[in-house]
Design a protein around this nucleic acid. Structure first.
Lengths: 296, 296
DNA sequence: ACACGTTACGGCAACCGTAAGGATT
DNA sequence: AATCCTTACGGTTGCCGTAACGTGT
C-alpha cells in the first residue's frame, strides 16, 4: 500500500488508470504489468466491493454509476497514502494557510526558511478558507497552518505569530487619500466592502468601533481580498484589509492605504500544529521557527 | 482492504489495535489471529513505511513519535475504507448539514423521510461549519449536504431548498418585544450579536440595510447561534437569526422574535450533492426529495 | 485479420499458525 | 516462574506472467 507491492492499493490505482485511459492494455503497459493482471486486479476489487465498477464493452470500457461514485474514494485513498509516506519517510512538509496569509504574507518566510536549509525540499503549500484549513489539520492533510482565526480546540498547539494591522484602502484621488490617519468617525455610514468570511475580522472591527459607538455599514461580502481590491480600485467603495495584503498596490500607487486613528485595530495571526507532531519533526521545526520570527 | 482479507489495511487495523491495547496478545485474540502474525503485520508495516511505529519495551509497548504521527492517517484511511463500502454496498447515506440547519431545521425532514421508508436504515448525519461541510463533500465523507451558503463550484448539483426568514430576537420585557414588526431604523446604532461566520448572513443583511442606508453595528461574533441566544436571553444585546432557530424559545417565552419591517431579509438554503452520485442512489433520492419538499 | 478483455495454468512470493527462543519482572 | 515479543519453519493462499480463447469491428 504505502510502497510498491501487490495489494489493494495497487488495485485501486489500476482502477483509476482504467477510468482514465479506458484501455486495459494501455494500463498494463503504463504499470509494467501483463494485461491479464490488470483484468484480475479489477476483478478482485469488484468482488471485494461487491459491485461492478467498470462496464466492459466491445467499443471501450466505461465506469458504471457505482464506479463513478467510487472514484472520489479511490482518489482520496491514494492521496492519503501518498501523504502518509511523505510525512513519515521523506519528511516533506504540508503547510496550510488561510487565504489572505497564503496569498500575501507567507512567501518571504517560506523563501527565507527553505532557501537556507539545503536539506529541505520545498513544502507542499495549500491555501484555502480558514475553516477548511482547520479541517485539513484534522485529517492530517496538512501538518502546520497559519490561520487568521483559531478556536483553541484540544489536541493542537497554537502560537501567536504576527499581529497585522487593519488599514483602510481607497482609490487614488479619493478625498481621504491625502490623510495621514483616518478618524474612525469618517467611516460612519460609508459602505464598507467585506472580504472572506470566517476569518474573525468582524469581531475585531466590532471591538474597535463598537466601543466608540461607531456606526458602520457593511456592504457586500465579496468573498476574497482580491475581489475587494478590484472593487475599491474601481471606485465602488472602500474597505478595511490587512496591511500586508495591499503593500504592492500602495507601492505602485493603484491603491492608497490609510492607517486608522488611535489604537489601530489589528488581527492576531496564529501558527497551529497537532500536538502529536514529533518534537523533532521538520513540520514542527518550521512552526516553531515561524513563531520565533513573530513580528509585532 | 475493503473487506476481510490480508493486506495493508489489516496491518493498519492491527497497528491501531496495538496502540489502543498496548498488548500484542490481546490484539491477536481480538482479531482472531496468532500472536506471531500480529508481530509480523506490524513489522511489515514498519518496513513499508521505513519507520519504527511502536517501541517495544519490557513493560509494555508505546507508539514512537512517528507512530503517533501516523495515527491520524491510520484512522483516516480506515474511516475512508469503511465509508467506501458503506456507500457502495450497504448504501447507507451520509448527510452533512451546516450548524444552524443541522441543529434546528433538519430533524423533521429526516424523521418523516426515514420513518416512512422501512427499507432505509438511519443515515449518518454530520454537523459542522458551512465550509467544513463543503470540504467533506469534496472528500466523499458525505454524500449530500444542506448548506447556508454555496459557491457554485463545478461538479456539484445545488438545488434551492427553503427560504428562511431572518428575525430580530430580544429578551422578554425588551422595549421592542411588543412591536408586531421592527422598523429597520430601530436597529441603527444598536450592538448586534453575530453568530457563526461563513454562512452568508452578512451579505444578506448588507443587501437589506445597505440600500436603506442603515447604520449597523456588528458586536461580538460569538461563533454559534446557541451562544447568541444565551447572550440575548441574558440581556447583553439583540441579534438577527434564522426564524427556525428560535421557534422553541418563542413558544416558551424565553425569547421574543420580531419580524422585520418591509421586505424581510431571508436566506436561501441549498441542498447539494456531487454530480457523480448515481441517478438512482439513495443519497440522491434523499436530496431530490428534500428539494421537492422545498418550503417557501 | 485485428484489437480487446477473459480465463486457465504453472511458478513464485507473501502470509499465517505453530512453536521454540531471549528478555524482563 | 510468568509474561511478553521475536524469530524460524512448514503449509497454504494469492498474485503474476504466459498464452490460449471468445467476441465484436
Amino acid at each position: 500500500m504505502f510502497t510498491e507491492g501487490r495489494g489493494t492499493t495497487e488495485q485501486v490505482a489500476t482502477f483509476l488508470a482504467i477510468v482514465r485511459t479506458r484501455n486495459f492494455r494501455a494500463v498494463a503497459r503504463e504499470r509494467g504489468q501483463s494485461q491479464g493482471a490488470v483484468s484480475q486486479q479489477l476483478r478482485k476489487l469488484e468482488v471485494a466491493l461487491g459491485v461492478r465498477l467498470i462496464k466492459r464493452d466491445a467499443r471501450g470500457c466505461l465506469p458504471t454509476p457505482e464506479g463513478t461514485g467510487f472514484l472520489v474514494f479511490a482518489e482520496s485513498l491514494l492521496r492519503l497514502n501518498a501523504r502518509a509516506v511523505e510525512v513519515l519517510r521523506t519528511h516533506r512538509i504540508a503547510i496550510g494557510a488561510s487565504s489572505n496569509i497564503g496569498i500575501y504574507l507567507l512567501q518571504p518566510y517560506i523563501k527565507s526558511y527553505f532557501d537556507g536549509c539545503a536539506g529541505h525540499r520545498l513544502p507542499d503549500i495549500q491555501i484555502h478558507q480558514n475553516p477548511v484549513i482547520a479541517h485539513k489539520l484534522d485529517t492530517g492533510e496538512i501538518d502546520v497552518a497559519t490561520l487568521e482565526w483559531w478556536d483553541n480546540r484540544p489536541g493542537y498547539v497554537a502560537r501567536p505569530w504576527r499581529r497585522e494591522e487593519l488599514v483602510a484602502i481607497v482609490p487614488p484621488g479619493h478625498p481621504w487619500a491625502a490623510l495621514p490617519r483616518l478618524p474612525s468617525a469618517a467611516l460612519q455610514g460609508v459602505p464598507l466592502l467585506g472580504g472572506e468570511s470566517g476569518t474573525g475580522t468582524g469581531r475585531i472591527l466590532a471591538r474597535y468601533f463598537g466601543a466608540q459607538l461607531g456606526d458602520m455599514q457593511i456592504g457586500m461580502r465579496l468573498g476574497s481580498t482580491e475581489a475587494v481590491k478590484q472593487w475599491v480600485k474601481a471606485g465602488l467603495g472602500v474597505s478595511l484589509v490587512l496591511a500586508g495584503t495591499v503593500a504592492d498596490e500602495c507601492r505602485e500607487g493603484t491603491l492608497v492605504a490609510i492607517p486608522l486613528e488611535g489604537e489601530a485595530p489589528n488581527k492576531e495571526l496564529y501558527v497551529v500544529w497537532r500536538e502529536s507532531l514529533a518534537a523533532d519533526s521538520p513540520a514542527r521545526a518550521f512552526g516553531e521557527w515561524l513563531a520565533a520570527h513573530a513580528v509585532g
